[in-house]
Nucleic acid binder design. Structure first.
Length: 693
DNA sequence: CGGCAATGCGCC
DNA sequence: AAACGGCGCATTGCCG
């Protein structure tokens, strides 16, 4: 295969990190400093910006020929950046021919698939490659590429030469990386090409709404922030200084069993500190609804008021409004929001405005009254909320929906809209992880229970509490049953279960729920954990392929792979056999294995265990089903615009939008391997002009 | 001044 | 006889 590996160095007043490659590359101040390349692994050649204009120069002519040769593949590390520069500058300004997506290859995508760090120098270091990215050169390029306070670049011939040298050494590092990690494989390449289509297609944003929401938030926050500052002397709401200040004020943080105060300022803890319960919330809502002036309360302690302000204004999510403004392109769309294989198991992660963690709507609106005259609460209507915000009048929003900032937060996801004349379609795979783990374990009685749409949560709760459970009357017990089914599939322990689902109960209570899951509800699931654990450890120790539950573990060229039923592989880098002592007996030493992965911003060694492997395999299978849905959607002529782990969001001409058809794309045309596993695939769908939950 | 690591928060 | 996991962004202080 012939290839050209390329790398641009650029300068711009635009912030690449905030705006993303697309907006950066179409920004009028963005200039190419140089373009480095190697043809088929030959010497690195650096073309300066001036030379680039001379199409007949030696260096340029060779590249020009490669561009015009449809058999030459263009390779870059994070090629979205190179593609953006190519299309918005090389093609649009310099008149070079375009290079279609089918001729691009991304070494970063391969790093993502194989569980390596995404940053070039980190990947090279993890692989112990001899060529390393020149980090001083990076700094020099960044220095050169940024404007000073007056908006000038501080370029000199010496500095430019430094950038050219750095560019050339980068090409060498990228080439070595490419030769080590190689390609994606035919099947994943198709997924990656779809990823590129989706990222380039972008997501339409309602910028009128975004700008109005920003104004409403600013206006509503202004007096509150001023009050906060005068109360505490602290500038930023989320400053850790607030915690110290609160402690000094004698704020009565709740104490745990050991009498240690919980000083976390999490949403939950702040609510606890303010002693809020439902009755009080209702009272506040009522006052707002009638527009009455609050009655004069006894002067609250300063800390109490500061916490109230934190609660109202402290939502970090409204920062998404600024993110949207920064990354919205000239076409009114945000591009590059998804990272291919951003998670270890192949799911996408979110970038820039991060469409995967919009706050869930929290507004409770009176939607009617029951026969006793009690209010019935429901979610807000997206169009009503958007219309109110678009008045740009915080007080009007307050009148309609209560606290303006809370209203905007609740409606943040409505910033995402369908293209002109189109509607959004959305579907999420119902309880996909619980279904897959039961099916893979062969626990078919419980799979059928979920398949029929019958809720398995009631029988689960009845097993735990050994009595009849009614979903309405015994809501607490029902919820425990639900959490047990959804949460216990990967070997969760009693302490975690208690902390997460029932912090006010005893550890024994939590342990009992877990025992019932493992012994009565799904006894085959623990067998799955231990089966995968044993197979993976044996594959690493014996260096021979091992199969369990249809998953094949195998050492491959420095990785441990887990082959899923679809044939796709999960990759664990640098697996090594280790001996580890059991926590219950330090003299009980058993074989295990560890591998390297990127976790919480760090490249770490981590020990494999059955629960984790099961989680990975199940997530991987769910991803394959999501991808199957994506291809079905695209083949039907609908356009996927993004996804959220188990949910696909597409757009299509309004007259073609149809929730029940969309459900069929998501759940139909199931591959044979999934049929063989008897995974019941179902989805929840909606169609509408705006993103919602 | 910018990059980096640590921490907290939002989602699935 | 144990262990739920996965992300990205904003903010901060630290460091060069």
């Amino acid at each position: 295969m012939r290839f050209a590996l390329i790398d641009f160095e650029t300068e711009s007043a635009c912030d690449l990190k905030k705006s993303g490659a697309w907006v950066y590359s179409e920004h009028p101040t963005t200039n190419i400093l140089c373009l480095g390349y190697t043809l088929d692994g030959g010497p690195s050649i650096v073309i300066s910006a001036d030379e680039l204009l001379d199409v007949w120069g030696d260096k340029t002519a060779q590249l020009w020929a490669a561009v015009n040769d449809p058999t030459v593949i263009f390779i870059a590390h994070n090629c979205s950046f190179e593609k953006g520069i190519w299309r918005n500058i090389m093609v649009a300004v310099f008149g070079w021919p375009d290079i279609p997506n089918e001729r691009w290859h991304d070494t970063q995508a391969v790093c993502a698939m194989k569980g390596l760090p995404l940053k070039l120098e980190r990947a090279a270091s993890a692989l112990r490659l001899s060529a390393r990215k020149d980090t001083d050169g990076t700094k020099a390029t960044l220095d050169l590429g940024r404007t000073d306070k007056k908006g000038y670049y501080n370029s000199t011939p010496e500095k430019l030469q430094r950038v050219y040298d750095y560019n050339a050494s980068d090409i060498v590092a990228e080439l070595e990386l490419h030769r080590r990690v190689r390609g994606l494989g035919a099947s994943e390449r198709r997924v990656w090409l779809l990823d590129q289509t989706i990222n380039e297609r972008g997501v339409r944003l309602d910028m009128e709404f975004v700008s109005a929401a920003q104004k409403v938030c600013d206006d509503a926050a202004k007096p509150l922030l001023a009050e906060f500052r005068s109360l505490t002397g602290i500038d930023k709401l989320r400053s850790p200084k607030l915690k110290d200040w609160l402690i000094k004020q004698g704020c009565p943080f709740p104490r745990d069993a050991d009498g240690k105060p919980d000083t976390s300022l999490s949403k939950e803890n702040v609510a606890k500190l303010l002693g809020e319960d439902d009755d009080q919330e209702d009272l506040t809502d009522q006052e707002d609804a009638y527009g009455c002036e609050s009655y004069q309360q006894p002067l609250p302690f300063a800390y109490r008021r500061s916490l109230e302000i934190l609660q109202i204004v402290g939502s970090a999510s409204i920062k998404k409004l600024a993110a949207m403004q920064a990354c919205c392109g000239s076409d009114g769309r945000a591009h590059g929001l998804l990272q291919y294989h951003g998670t270890g198991t192949g799911l996408w992660s979110g970038r820039l405005l991060q469409p995967q963690n919009f706050p869930r709507p929290s507004l409770k609106i009176v939607v009617g009254f029951d026969k006793d005259g009690n209010e019935i609460f429901g979610g807000h209507d997206p169009e009503q909320l958007v219309a109110a915000v678009k008045t740009r009048d915080a007080e009007f929003v307050r009148l309609m929906f209560g606290e303006p900032i809370a209203a905007v937060v609740s409606g943040l996801r409505h910033s995402i809209v369908a293209s002109e004349g189109c509607l959004l379609e959305s579907a999420d795979l119902k309880q996909i992880q619980a279904r897959v783990v039961l099916a893979l374990a062969g626990q078919h009685d419980k799979v059928r229970l979920m398949e029929g749409g019958a809720t398995p949560y009631v029988p689960m709760a009845e097993s735990i509490f050994k009595r009849k459970i009614n979903k309405i009357v015994d809501l607490k017990e029902y919820t425990i049953g639900k959490c047990t089914i959804l949460g216990c599939g990967f070997g969760m322990g009693a302490l975690t279960f208690r902390r997460r689902y029932c912090p006010n109960e005893t550890v024994e209570y939590a342990q009992h729920a877990i025992d019932v899951y493992r012994q009565e509800f799904a006894p085959l699931v623990p067998k799955l954990w231990y089966g995968l654990e044993e197979a993976s450890i044996k594959a690493v120790w014996d260096r021979t392929p091992q199969e369990a539950f249809g998953i094949v573990y195998q050492l491959e060229d420095g990785w441990l792979t887990a082959r899923l039923p679809s044939g796709r592989k999960l990759w664990y880098f640098d697996p090594r056999p280790v001996r580890k002592a059991m926590p219950w007996d330090k003299d009980d030493i058993r074989p295990g294995f560890e591998y390297s992965c990127w976790k919480m911003g760090q490249w770490i060694r981590r020990t494999g265990y059955g629960g984790l492997e099961t989680q990975n395999v199940v997530s991987g299978i769910a991803r394959d089903l999501l991808v199957n849905g994506m291809f079905n959607i695209e083949n039907a002529g609908h356009k996927v615009v993004f996804n959220v782990h188990d949910e696909n969001i597409a757009e299509v001409e309004a007259e073609c939008a149809d929730a029940s058809m969309f459900d069929k794309y998501m759940t139909g045309n199931i591959p044979n391997w999934a049929k063989a596993l008897h995974i019941p695939v179902a989805s929840d769908c909606w169609v509408g002009p705006r993103y919602r939950k």
